[in-house]
Write a protein that binds this DNA or RNA. Structure first.
Lengths: 138, 138
DNA sequence: ATAGTCCTGCAACGGAAGTGCATTTTTTCC
DNA sequence: GGAAAAAATGCACTTCCGTTGCAGGACTAT
């Protein structure tokens, strides 16, 4: 918990109790979560607080948003190798159509994309859909 | 109009007046449109009809959905080179952060992605964000 | 022409995102 | 330590988008 507190301070986010709990929850999850997921995990607290906490995390580069096509936004902690701020970074996310879970595959490298003349890229998001390793074993 | 009628019939979609109009609208647009865009263009007709028309088009492989991160779904006609049904197809879409428009860059090829062991892909979507050619000229 | 199927229009629902404002908590500064 | 200021939280409400149920209208087939 002390580590979380320090981390949040480094990101210029005040380490309130709620924020540390939500951060811990995100850290424990191996997959991206929706706002509703967090609400269920913390029934005692308010939707708005969770919403604003995630927004704060997002603006501070602590989490990044994933639109996996399920219609609702999902959030995952930015890892060490996740250069969300960098222009050239490509986020690879995998959405399992069986268990409906979305995870970051940070170790999978994405080749560079050549855009047509006149286009300049600042960000990119790649969502691959299919069956994840767990569901393929069953 | 006759061509549209024929095309819809080939896709096993009955060529009603509404459907042909919406198809024509989509064909004229160079960018992906939202349901709201179509509603504005056809103020006289009902939201639901447009919604169901697009759903019909989607299920018949006439249009494909794009989630460009703006929160709302956008739709674009499947072109000749758009193998929406094929498993290995990668849809490359470009979302301009200035004019907020999303377009299909079908001529831009996507390299193959190597997934970690255990993962199998059935679909993928790639959205690149930045500045489009038009906005870069200004 | 009639029955059946499909399409369209209207109304309403539901989920998720977002906002305004009052209250509480935390920080700052004396 | 205590008051003032700033930030975080809780509650209510709104809006937006997608979706569905149902009734009437249009089309198709026989």
């Amino acid at each position: 918990m002390k580590a979380i507190e320090k981390f949040l301070e480094e990101k210029h986010v005040r380490p309130t109790a709620m924020r540390m709990l939500i951060f811990k929850f995100l850290a424990q999850k191996q997959v991206a979560v929706t706002l509703a997921d967090i609400e269920i995990a913390f029934e005692k607290s308010e939707r708005t607080t969770i919403y604003r906490t995630i927004k704060t995390f997002e603006n501070s580069g602590i989490v990044h948003v994933i639109e996996d096509g399920s219609g609702v936004s999902k959030y995952a902690l930015c890892e060490a190798g996740c250069n969300c701020e960098l222009d050239s970074d490509l986020h690879l996310h995998f959405h399992c159509e069986i268990c409906k879970e979305t995870q970051c595959l940070t170790e999978t490298k994405i080749p560079h994309i050549n855009l047509p003349p006149g286009f300049t890229a600042t960000d990119a998001s790649l969502v691959v859909k299919g069956t994840c390793d767990k569901c393929n074993k069953e």
